[in-house]
Design a protein around this nucleic acid. Structure first.
Lengths: 149, 149
DNA sequence: GTGTTTGCAAATGTTTTGCAGTGTC
DNA sequence: GACACTGCAAAACATTTGCAAACAC
């Protein structure tokens, strides 16, 4: 098939490169590899999972560089992280990020939820406590339908 | 003042002891110390904070025993833990636990919220996704009023 | 060429585990 | 007196850091 339309990964990488250069930073192999991994797997990945996937892509990239790349790309806004409870953190591309998350405490499954689920709660929190909610930054916790016997 | 009414800590310890014995387990010095610490400070404490507070109470109690006590008492239902995001977990007595939490990503402050804040969301989650929410198990994330310059 | 970023290795910090001795019931 | 639980020390684990070499711009 002829591929005139832009490769989505290519687009992400080029966008990130531009943002990086605008800050005087650079697009490098580790950063490209992290973006590649996150673009391929649509799901949320723990840092160690990213490390493993990157290793399968380019043996030369060090663990520490993956951590540093995740942090840089997160600061840049290209990547976002979610706290899943139980101490684990997961990363994904910010572009995919128009939904909220719930994590099952029993099986660990992550359920995607409509992005507006907490809108009313956020409004109430802001007016009553002056607290500005970032609803996508933590996953709600509970038990998924499959795990309720 | 004469203290005929029961000491609240005493009550917690005795209740826990009973639950422990009912399982064939025992009330021990580390477990009593952890309950004492959590009963005194009303707030949510990270494991290492509990370790530190316990050390100030009884030098002989080992770090590992505090971790084990927290887990046991959590299984028992006497103590509960909340995930505050950013990898940190906090413990408190289950009895104090009729409220939800929000953590400020900037300063780390934990704000207590009304216990019914997520009731509508929980209902919607259950009917639409079959997901049973445990609203107190994770803290909502955002920015507190003091940190919004 | 300049200055950021990397790979490495070691440090860090928290939590877990195996085991022999201790103490609760 | 049994057996759960402890203290200890070491292991496991994830993440961070200092530094000289490498490479993006």
């Amino acid at each position: 098939m002829a591929e005139l339309p832009v490769d989505p990964l290519e687009e992400v990488v080029m966008g990130a490169a531009e943002l990086l250069r605008a800050r005087g930073d650079r697009m490098t192999a580790p950063r490209r590899a992290v973006l590649t991994v996150l673009a391929r797997r649509q799901s949320h990945l723990a840092p160690e999972q990213v490390v493993a996937a990157v290793a399968g892509l380019d043996t030369g990239i060090h663990r520490a560089s993956v951590y540093r790349a995740l942090e840089t790309l997160n600061d840049l806004g290209v990547v976002q992280h979610v706290h899943l409870g139980h101490g684990t953190t997961a990363y994904h591309l910010a572009a995919e990020h128009r939904h909220l998350h719930a994590a099952c405490g029993r099986c660990g499954a992550v359920v995607d939820l409509p992005g507006d689920l907490l809108d009313q709660v956020a409004a109430r929190l802001e007016s009553e406590a002056g607290f500005v909610l970032d609803p996508a930054h933590v996953a709600l916790s509970g038990t998924c339908s499959a795990c309720r016997g």
